[in-house]
Design a binder for these strands. Structure first.
Lengths: 150, 150
DNA sequence: TCCGATAAGTTTCAAAATGCAACCTATTCG
DNA sequence: CGAATAGGTTGCATTTTGAAACTTATCGGA
């Protein structure tokens, strides 16, 4: 496999996986496109209507997400639509989307403000996601550190 | 508590926690500032040097992160520095940072490309983070859905 | 077969965000 | 006191984003 950013542009911090991920999907719209794809959106117009994004920007973001292997574009059966579907790598962003969602639920709403909720197949809210150490105990940022590779 | 975006701007999608989180930290730099804060950075110059960000943009992002309750700014003891520290809400982004990091490790590097690694206090790599249903079984995007609130 | 509606863009141009470099101010150290 | 360091601010050029109009292709019905 070969992972690249757009031609002529470079990674912000080539050795850091967080930075690479931000380079790929860390703009105002990409993650919301992915969120809507996870919620069933597949057509250009569908993304456009759900997000209220400018059409030229949507065109650009869909193209980049396809380029980066996060979405797959194909002709829909009726011939006048295209279908955008999450690739395996795109579906694998589910964990990150859930983490951002849960943080938002905890910190981006006033206590009495309503917000949408992510539920499992039985309509039950998901448990909170939390990093664990190898010993199975919850791990905090201070208890971990980044090991740089040569 | 009262959560707000900058004066004069509105939430992209007020009911969605993912969208609110993206509105707060979904730009090219904020998440990397948070990453470096988690890795021990506290001073303006430190962030500037690690990130290679323009100084005026860094000023703006630090101010916004403080405004949003993610960083806390205080005068350092030596009198000529300021200290930026993650608030509790900021530390709580650890889960999201780990999720984005792990996705990057899996999908943003070629198999032979080296990258930095996040390790626990004993130098052991973290296990993979994965959303679970209430029954404790791994949950995929298709097996879940967003319940909208009125 | 022609017609209107729908889908998926592209183009144009204005506005906002970003980046670079120079400048500024306070503090501390020698 | 003077130089160095920290943490900015300002001005200006470049890049990105956004709104709206225009384009092309397809489909379904009259």
């Amino acid at each position: 496999m070969d992972v690249t950013l757009a031609a002529g542009s470079a990674w912000t911090d080539p050795a850091c996986p967080v930075a690479r991920t931000v380079d790929l999907i860390g703009d105002r719209w990409s993650l919301l496109i992915i969120r809507d794809a996870m919620d069933g959106a597949t057509a250009f117009t569908e993304f456009h209507q759900r997000l209220g994004i400018a059409r030229n920007i949507l065109t650009d973001r869909l193209r980049k997400l396809v380029e980066h292997g996060i979405l797959d574009k194909s002709a829909a059966t009726d011939g006048r639509r295209h279908t955008y579907r999450l690739t395996e790598a795109g579906q694998d962003l589910f964990t990150a989307v859930v983490a951002l969602r849960q943080w938002g639920e905890r910190h981006a709403f006033a206590p009495d403000e309503p917000h949408s909720v992510l539920v499992d197949g039985h309509g039950r809210e998901l448990p909170e996601l939390r990093p664990l150490g190898q010993d199975g105990a919850p791990l905090s940022a201070e208890a971990s550190h980044v090991r740089k590779t040569v």
